[in-house]
Design a protein around this nucleic acid. Sequence first.
DNA 1: CGGATGTTTGACTCGAATCAAAAACGGTGG
DNA 2: CCACCGTTTTTGATTCGAGTCAAACATCCG
Lengths: 221, 221
Amino acid sequence: MAEHECVQLVPIFSELGSEQLDIIESIVRHHHYPAGSTLFGADDPLDSLMIVAYGQVKVYQLAANGREQLLYLLQTGDIDGEAALFENQRRTSFGEALVPTDVCSIRRSDFQDLMQKYPSISIKVLNVFGKRLNQLERQTTSTATESVEARLANYITETAAALKTYTFKLSLKKKDLATFLGTTPESISRKLALFERQGLITQKPGKVIEINDADQLLLTE
Amino acid sequence: MAEHECVQLVPIFSELGSEQLDIIESIVRHHHYPAGSTLFGADDPLDSLMIVAYGQVKVYQLAANGREQLLYLLQTGDIDGEAALFENQRRTSFGEALVPTDVCSIRRSDFQDLMQKYPSISIKVLNVFGKRLNQLERQTTSTATESVEARLANYITETAAALKTYTFKLSLKKKDLATFLGTTPESISRKLALFERQGLITQKPGKVIEINDADQLLLTE
DNA sequence: CGGATGTTTGACTCGAATCAAAAACGGTGG
DNA sequence: CCACCGTTTTTGATTCGAGTCAAACATCCG
């Protein structure tokens, strides 16, 4: 059954046997969100763990001045970035589906029972958080100390590396990419045009980018 | 015995009985670091959990252009910010003692055994990481979207709130505070002078700051 | 096809970094 | 306890990256 998928998808349950997966499946709830809809908002009670079964979710915060900061882009198989699941806290970020998205959720208390019963789950979750912390540490370092040019060049090469191809489609609108990199859509536009003039990349229709000189791109300051 | 302290200090062990604390104490190693010394560097193998028994440790990263970004300031009772303890990874950050510091460490494998034996520990660690993620998310949002002025105003009010006093001593040199806030020592100096001219704060000898108008400070854009 | 949404380009402004030098501070040893 | 030296901080002058605003242009989708 299609609905079994989300539990199997998620690495945090990977060490469990299929009987245990059945148990988990029985306590999971399924939701569907159309593109553009809100999964959760700041101040919502944080009472369940979310698993993205299919789709793409942007998780962002609002600064005091109202500006948006994209923190994570959750893909199929990712779990919700909110880390305070284990305490009684409210959310501090917003989640929005970028494409039609299926989500499974497990209530906090159920998930805590699971962690008590299967300690391997907590260790897996710890690893997920660990990776996220590392990613966020690098993001912080980079927005705080590097130029827009360098950050964008970095984003392009990292995305290409993750997809193992030199030609790929930007999965975000420039506006969202801008809030991710801590800049503006205009600046991104200009810098991409600059990279193209320098012969480092080629922009093709449909937000597709081809990297011509990855080495030089990485040297961008 | 004084050396028992570090295990008792740490909230992650708070639910354990004293017999269990004894066991943990027996597998812990003690280290001392003079002010200015390095606890660990990038590329060091990450093979143990560190607990700050006494002192202050700055944890920072280097950006590609060589600039420093302060990520955390570990105080007495904090555990090491490196999140990838549970996988076989290398460090990506540096740790430096700002004052003479005592540290206890537990080897990775020992700590993993502890987590298997006492699941409450993993949940506590999860909470610590969760808080750190939240803090880092706010830091990222703030450096990426707010002005130096707003970030500094925020830092001052938050520090005061944490210490529950309007008069406090800056625990960092301006150079370190600058890398934390993603700016330069010169800018901090100027902005503090500005706040003082505006009557929001008073600067006193010994890096002491007194807040005169917390409300107005928070409104700084 | 047409309107809305997203993107590019241009002109302008401004915050904050940089560089340089003076001033203040703080720890050390005599 | 004070004088001294290195470090930290402040102040000033200047530069520059990148944000803002506005308008033209492209693209997407119903």
